[in-house]
């Protein structure tokens, strides 16, 4: 394994510094959101019509995202998603808060999943690839911060903090865990969760009525997409029986040509797997 663990440690330290700077920016956005939330509550300016409009916007966007996916998808998962948007209970609630709570629930599940994965010998133990282990550890920490940011945003808009994992995908993880036999299984599961997170946030960004909720979510969606990107590359190298190439820095000369584009399959990020606002929202 061509990994300089000391150098990797230094890189992680630099990454932590950069992350702290990014957190500062996010905190500023959250503080702005706090002020907006306070103002709205003080003035009683939480407008049900505005929330209805936001729900309608998001429903419209989701309908568009389903166009072209195909009749089968529209009649299955897509129809279920649109059905949720049509319920009066959903439309009467603060949609921004719901989206933030659902986002927090996805982050909570991601943290729990990586935490569990790190207890496995081939992810967090002595037989683990150091880069994979470092990635899982750092990514778990980043998801923790994302969850905190979403919950803070929800609370400051008058909602409650979400402390439970997304129920739909918690069931998916629970069902998948017994069949995990090696790193590829974990990576495949992580790709699914990260994709759901990224696509949900991409869809949410154009549906928020609150500008700062939009900004906070936008600052997170690309990071989840980066997680997907690296996981796709790792998955491809594992599938190609070339785990020795999962290294930092990589041995560029040995990487297959196709590895150069495996991490960004689409010119435009998709939203087919976006979760509806109510999926992880508190009632």
């Amino acid at each position: 394994m061509s990994v300089d663990e000391h150098a990797l440690g230094e890189l992680m330290e630099q990454s932590a510094d950069l992350q702290a700077a990014a957190m500062h920016q996010s905190t500023e956005a959250l503080n702005e959101m706090v002020e907006v939330g306070h103002d709205r509550r003080r003035s009683g300016d939480i407008d049900p019509d505005q929330d209805m409009a936001a729900a309608a916007r998001r429903q419209e966007l989701m309908r568009k995202s389903l166009v072209g996916v195909g009749t089968l998808a529209a009649a299955g998962f897509g129809a279920a998603v649109l059905g949720l948007f049509d319920t009066p209970a959903f439309a009467d609630s603060a949609t921004d808060v719901q989206m933030l709570q659902t986002a927090a629930s996805i982050e909570i599940l991601a943290v729990a999943t990586y935490q569990t994965a790190l207890t496995l010998p081939f992810i967090g133990g002595s037989s683990a690839n150091p880069v994979v282990k470092a990635f899982a550890t750092t990514t778990m920490a980043q998801h923790t911060q994302h969850g905190q940011a979403f919950n803070a945003a929800a609370q400051q808009l008058g909602g409650k903090a979400q402390s439970a994992a997304d129920p739909k995908y918690a069931a998916v993880v629970k069902a998948a865990v017994p069949s995990i036999k090696g790193p590829a299984d974990v990576v495949g599961l992580a790709i699914k969760l990260e994709t759901v997170a990224a696509e949900t946030y991409v869809a949410d960004v154009s549906a928020y009525s609150d500008l700062n909720a939009r900004k906070v979510t936008a600052s997170i969606m690309g990071v989840e997409a980066q997680h997907v990107s690296i996981l796709l590359a790792v998955q491809a190298l594992l599938a190609a029986n070339a785990p020795q190439l999962i290294a930092l820095p990589p041995n560029l000369t040995d990487l297959p040509g196709a590895a150069g584009s495996i991490g960004f399959p689409n010119a435009f990020y998709q939203t087919d797997m976006a979760s509806p606002a109510s999926e992880g929202a508190l009632s």
């Binding site: 890189l11 950069l18 700077a21 936008a218 600052s219 990071v223 980066q226 930092l248």
Partner: peptide, 12 residues
């Protein structure tokens, strides 16, 4: 480039 690929928890 051998740099950690996801350096920030939040995009800047």
């Amino acid at each position: 480039l051998g740099t950690y690929p996801v350096p920030n928890a939040f995009a800047m």
